[in-house]
Amino acid sequence: MIAALARPGTSPLHRIAAAPKLAGLAIVATVLFFVDEPRLLAAAFAAALVVARSTGTRFAEIGRDLRGAAVVLAVLGLADWWLIDGPTAIAVVLRLAAIALFAHAVTMTTSTAELTEVLERIFGPAERLGLLDAARAALTVTLALRFVPLIVEEANAIREAQAARGLDASPLALAVPLMVRVIVRSEALADAIDARGFPPEGARRGAARHIPARPPSP
C-alpha cells in the first residue's frame, strides 16, 4: 500500500498537470513490464529514486510511506527466489519498486481534487455507454484514499479491545467486527455525502441518478 497523499510544493512535478503525470506513469509502468534486464531495471529504480526525491520528500519519508509496499515486495522477492531463481527475483523486485516510487512521486505532487477530475474524465466514455456513473466512480477512488488510514485506526482499536479481553491476534476475530464497523460507517458517510450536495450539479443526468432519500418501510 502506498500511504501517501499530496503535499504542497513547487517542484517540477508539482507544476505538471495531473493528466500527463498519470499518463506518464501508465506508460512507464507498461514499458517496465517488458524489460527483463536487471541492469536496466536497476537504472530505472535509480531514476525513480531521483524523481521521488525531486518532489521535496526526504528519503526517510518516502521509506515510511512505502513500508507496506516494501514488505509485499520482500515477500514476493523471496518467493520468486525460492520458486524460480535469483536474477528473476531481483528483476521483479526492482521493477515493482521503481513503479511504486514513480507512483509515489505522482501521488505526492497531485491533489486528490485533481486526481478525481482526471478520473471523471477517464470514466466519461464508460458513462456515455451507460456502464457507470463517472462522478461516483471517481468519488469511490477518493474515498479509498481518505478512508484507508481510518480503517487502519479502526482495526487497531478492535485489536486493542480484543487484546484487553484476552483474545490472541486472530484474523477472523478482527475481520468480522471491522467489516461491521465499516458497513455502519459507510451508511453514515452516504448520508453525509448526500447532505453535501453530491452528485455535482453538472454531473447529474436525471432523476434516476440522484440518490433517493432512504424510503420508509411499507
Binding site: S111, A113, R146, L150, L189, D191, A192, P200
Partner: peptide, 24 residues
C-alpha cells in the same frame, strides 16, 4: 454530523471544504 470522520470526504482540509461547493 455527530462523527466528523463520517462527514469529511476528501483527504486534505482545503479539498474537503471545496467538496460541497463543487457539488453545488
Amino acid at each position: 454530523f455527530q462523527d466528523p470522520d463520517n462527514q469529511i470526504v476528501m483527504p486534505l482540509v482545503a479539498e474537503d471544504l471545496a467538496f460541497g461547493l463543487k457539488n453545488h
